[in-house]
Design a protein around this nucleic acid. Sequence first.
RNA 1: GGUCCUGUGGAGCAGUUGGAGUGCUCGCCGCCCUGUCAAGGCGGAGGUCGCGGGUUCAAGUCCCGUCAGGACCGCCA
Length: 598
Amino acid sequence: MIRTHEAGSLRAEHAGQTVTLAGWVARRRDHGGVIFVDLRDASGIVQVVFREEDAHALRNEFCVKVTGEVRTRPEGNENPELATGAIEVAATELVVLSEAAPLPLPVDDTITASDDLRLKYRYLDLRRSGPASALKLRSRANQIAREVLHARDFNEIETPTLTRSTPEGARDFLVPVRLQPGTWYALPQSPQLFKQLLMVSGLERYYQIARCYRDEDFRADRQPEFTQLDIEMSFVTQEDIIELGEELVSKLWGELAGYQVQLPIPRITWTDAMNRYGSDKPDLRYGVELTELTSYLAGTSFRVFAGAIDAGGYVGAVVMPGGASQTRKELDGWQDWAKARGARGLAYVVLDADTGEARGPVAKNLSNEHLSGLADVVGAKPGDAIFFAASAERREAQELLGAARIEIAKRAGLIDESAWAFCWVVDAPMFEKTDEGGWTAVHHPFTSPNEEWEAKFEEAPDKALAYAYDIVVNGNEIGGGSVRIHRADVQKRVFDLLGITPEEAEDKFGFLLEAFKYGPPPHAGIALGWDRTCMLLSGNESIREVIAFPKTRGGYDPLTTAPTPITAQQRLEAGIDAKPKAAAGTPGTDGVAAPVLP
RNA sequence: GGUCCUGUGGAGCAGUUGGAGUGCUCGCCGCCCUGUCAAGGCGGAGGUCGCGGGUUCAAGUCCCGUCAGGACCGCCA
């Protein structure tokens, strides 16, 4: 070893010892006759004192080796801000291991640089304790997950990243195959089918910290490649997976966020979540619930509401506490806010703070009977504002109110930023209508109907419920899973309802259906969005902070400048422009990558 | 695909009504300095105001386009 001690580990009890440290010059304070250098390594910072001139040439981020004697600082010179602040190292020898050019961005916890610059020089960004600690936290999260799962006899198994497209909704990343020109691998959107195959194989308990890929647009919590803690178990029910999920979040939050999660985590049905919060991932750190007014406002002459009610739709409201004190400009701002979300607008009534009288453009359109009881029905007090949404599509109106609810909480300062509010959202619907009038799987087509609906989901596909569950914290979905279908007859009926023909099913996932001929066990699983989980645990607002080398919004990596064009030679070798042979292999049964037509 | 915000020495910012590349903090270079810890003092270097076009006597500032970064909507089961 080049060093005998880590800089941040030195304490008063080391006084008198001669130590050799190695690290970076975090800061140099040159007083002429005495020079102080804050020496930083991964463990922390210690002050090194030089009496020799040679330290004069040191600059920020030089990599150095220092030998010297640890000693307690002179009376009155301790630094309580520093873990090592009781001592300092009196240098006797200095070796410059490497010099640093002037820095393109400051390596300083107190200063922030722009995102693209940070990413271009991510290795310097990560010398800062904040960004580095996010990655260290993630490493510990991995360790905790592995401890929990190995204690339960899980097997960590790696599945292919060059594979067929899995039947998820998102666009695939594709990889040309040189050995079979004109054919393409897809990068997995999740290991879903492989983990189900591992259940067929009898491994019973599988997990993987799995890299997944989706070619969709970015968000603060979305990257094109991301990580899931992916779990699947055989011979279990929804209850078993939920119990496991609770141990995981309990340990993670307990050890990494210092928060004791109250178990069991409360559950809310998907329908209740939509009715009360207008979201399938409700933020329960604050109240402000939706009120349905469809029957209360029956017979109204206000066309916006009447139209929705007559169409068999929904009218609802959400209350903004103290919202009546908003200026006209602020209230108009809500209209722009709603329009930005694709809504026509957001009707509102304000209740006079003194008299409780309802005012605002919508108030004129409502009858006295409707107005007089309104405050009681929605639970509003004088001084509040009431926002309305109406639509022939119940979910559409509820989601608008749900988004308004979040915005209300932000604007009215209702969010306790230090709180953690967990819940499971259960009993999700199996299907939802497509724009074309058919049905599509809400989760994925292998999700099992629950016991009640297994025999009859065709009778009312819009009401049929699945054994599907999401775990939500503070309005963030951090994981989701389901019990899978393991019976061929049920799977066939689901495919039939989704309009997937046997030929299509065979073509897309014939290998899974084939495997399910051979005694598949009942199985269920869950996947935790690992980037998002670590982001929340580390108190960050972007998953980029918990990814070592993330990409910018455009899918660009400022550090490596990927993606890059390829040469004509590479293009030729990869067979990108090759025309696929008709029906190469028998896709779905022999694992040959499917031809993708241009 | 859409809406919005941002772009000014190496970094982070300010820049008023359109009037000289003006200013601040940090960093960088040189000198001074023996107890600092975001050290201090003195001096200095460093600029295609993202890019292109337009309006104007005059554009960092106004307009149009474009590029880059960010937030959100669509999209992402």
